[in-house]
């Protein structure tokens, strides 16, 4: 009877919730991004796979169109020195070589706290489903390798899901009329004046990237540091920058905890925010050497749905006048 009692007691004890198992630590993943203004202008990273995906567009694009339903922004490719001037005229044929002169002030997209403000500005009345263009004619300067071209550009009325524009050289020899259809799979559509059509494979699909290491233009006055490259506008320079896919990711920059100490429980209590671009994220300006140096105390935290990622740079190296390489440690929390 006593043995029966012992057996019962054993059974009683074994039939309980199993304690949680202990798992070995998982080392952070490593990746390296190599950027160059001339070749690899952008590197897209999906935090699921970590491997950078480089921009494969050939030829370069000149205009970038927003694809969202209510978005009608048109941006310029600053890295290819595309700039624009609003003639304020609405007669396309009337704009010719006489419209170009020393009084022309070239504009480029300007970063603001709310995001990139396009140089084309509000080119129409967007309160309609099919926006009504103000039909201003713009002068646009773009390059094909060493040759510069001066075109005129006019946004015609758009439909719900397409932009309509016409452009051509100032001598009115040829006028091109194109429709740029919005593609909801991608954040932007890209257009090349050289090919007269959309350029594919510039950026991955909307949900397929989280970070994009690239170059961004900004005011030299604001940064007070040497840019990677100067632009046609002497007030603006090109800096290395980081785009965050704000549609799916929230961000937090941490300098307090240290990469090794950051875990899910720490990250889940932080207040993440939304932003789309950061300048010189993992580097800081060394005033003594007048150069960018690694900011190894900084950890970039990203919150994507219910996942958290911590990213830290482990090395930063110049590989040429406008080239750099940055190595990252990425851990999912």
């Amino acid at each position: 009877m006593r043995s029966l009692g012992y057996i019962t007691l054993c059974l009683f004890l074994v039939s309980c919730f199993r304690p949680d198992e202990v798992l070995p630590p998982i080392a952070p993943q490593e990746t390296t991004v190599n950027l160059s203004i001339d070749e690899n202008q952008s590197a897209y990273i999906d935090l699921g796979s970590i491997l950078p995906e480089y921009n494969e567009s050939e030829p370069a694009w000149h205009l970038k169109f927003q694809n969202t339903n209510q978005g009608w922004g048109i941006y310029l490719n600053t890295l290819d020195n595309v700039v624009i001037h609003n003639t304020t005229q609405t007669d396309f044929d009337a704009v010719d070589a006489s419209s170009f002169g020393p009084e022309v002030v070239w504009q480029m997209d300007v970063p603001t706290p709310e995001g990139l403000s396009p140089a084309l500005g509000e080119w129409g009345d967007f309160s309609f489903d099919n926006p009504k263009s103000f039909k201003d004619v713009f002068l646009i300067l773009w390059n094909d390798q060493d040759t510069s071209y001066l075109y005129k550009l006019q946004l015609l009325d758009a439909t719900v899901n397409a932009y309509h524009l016409r452009y051509g050289p100032l001598n009115n020899d040829t006028t091109y009329s194109v429709w740029i259809n919005k593609d909801s799979d991608y954040a932007h559509s890209y257009f090349s004046f050289k090919k007269h059509k959309k350029v594919q494979n510039v950026e991955p699909q909307i949900g397929a990237w989280d970070l994009c290491f690239t170059y961004l233009q900004d005011s030299i006055q604001t940064h007070q540091i040497f840019p990677e490259q100067y632009t046609i506008n002497p007030n603006f320079g090109i800096y290395n920058g980081l785009l965050v896919n704000y549609r799916t990711n929230f961000l937090y920059l941490d300098t307090a905890a240290g990469f090794e100490n950051i875990d899910y429980f720490y990250a889940s209590k932080l207040e993440f925010y939304k932003t789309d671009q950061l300048f010189n994220t993992f580097v800081h300006w060394d005033r003594e050497n007048n150069a960018l140096e690694l900011a190894d105390e900084l950890t970039l935290l990203l919150n994507k749905e219910d996942k958290y990622y911590a990213i830290r740079a482990t090395s930063f190296a110049r590989t040429g006048p406008s080239n750099y390489s940055i190595s990252l440690l990425v851990k999912q929390l």
């Binding site: 949680d20 202990v22 798992l23 070995p24 875990d263 899910y264 429980f265």
Partner: peptide, 11 residues
């Protein structure tokens, strides 16, 4: 309950 099975932390 969120648990880290390596550090033995739960919240």
């Amino acid at each position: 309950i969120d648990k880290d099975l390596n550090k033995g932390i739960q919240e």
